[in-house]
Amino acid sequence: MKSSKETIPQLFEAALSGERRSLGKLLTLVERGGETADDVAGLAHRKAGNTHVIGITGAPGSGKSTLTGRLLELFSQTGHNSAVLAVDPSSPLTGGAILGDRIRMDDLTDENSFIRSMATRGHSGGLALAVPAAIQLFDAVGYKPVIIETVGVGQVEVDVAGAADTTVVVVTPGMGDAVQANKAGLLEVADIFVVNKSDRPGANDARRDLDLMLDLGHISGLEEKTGYRPPIIMANSLEGTGSQEIIEAIENHANHLKSSGSIKVRQDQRTLMEIQNRVELLIGTTAKETLSTEFGKAMINAVLNRETSPAQAAKSIVNSLLND
């Protein structure tokens, strides 16, 4: 174990004063989870609430990291200190991971930006706690905006990206036809669409399919309800085209959130989700512990002997937790 001599409040103070290494260490603590992570998250939470969170998501290889690098470059040029949390999957077999997002961003960044790679570490519950805590740390330290980049596969990743203030969904030509575009899921959480690799054949088809999907939202009444139609931006992140439009679209969306009051709805939603995730994790952990007690073993045996059903046993266990 790497022994750091500083206490958590000391590290936090140092991070607030701009010490990058202390922020790096705090992020590690948050990632490891447990009581220490809760302490760090608690400190961060008190100071947070000032940043704009941008989620960038899409299929593997769609160009999210390259695009993120372009946005960092532009934010930096306009005097913004932006932070990126780049989430990549851990191997379910070994727990290892190759975190390769920095490689797409490094050329474009400077001391104004802070990039942190995070592996999913195989436990979705942990990720659901670590990501909001890391965002709040960046927020507390003063990074504006905070970008969270995740692969758009798996419910947790979609939830995490969807919990941002502005969610950018990156698609590439050849992702499927209009029926695909109308399926529920990732595309629904988008506030901005980016058709990346727009120099490739089929880019205009992808744009048209997305446009048609949004038209259907107009007909079904969804657009009227939200008062917002997500823009579709053509981009080529390798060349850097489209990046400026994306920044403008993010600003437009942020303004829409403010003027319509939905920023409050989103923040409330995010807070609710964070508390809910924590409650579920706490109860889940206690429930697992209960299963290995005498009472738990008796319940398992009762189910095995067909004296009670799994659902009944689960209810009894939860009731025993609540009565404790």
Binding site: G24, T28, G96, L99, G100, R102, D106, E111, I115, S117
Partner: peptide
Amino acid sequence: GMEVIYLGLRQTTGSIIAAAEEED
């Protein structure tokens, strides 16, 4: 079972130091 932060080609001592700090 380790987490590898892959920086790849053409790095400088400065970019490696920055990555080492940010990534702990």
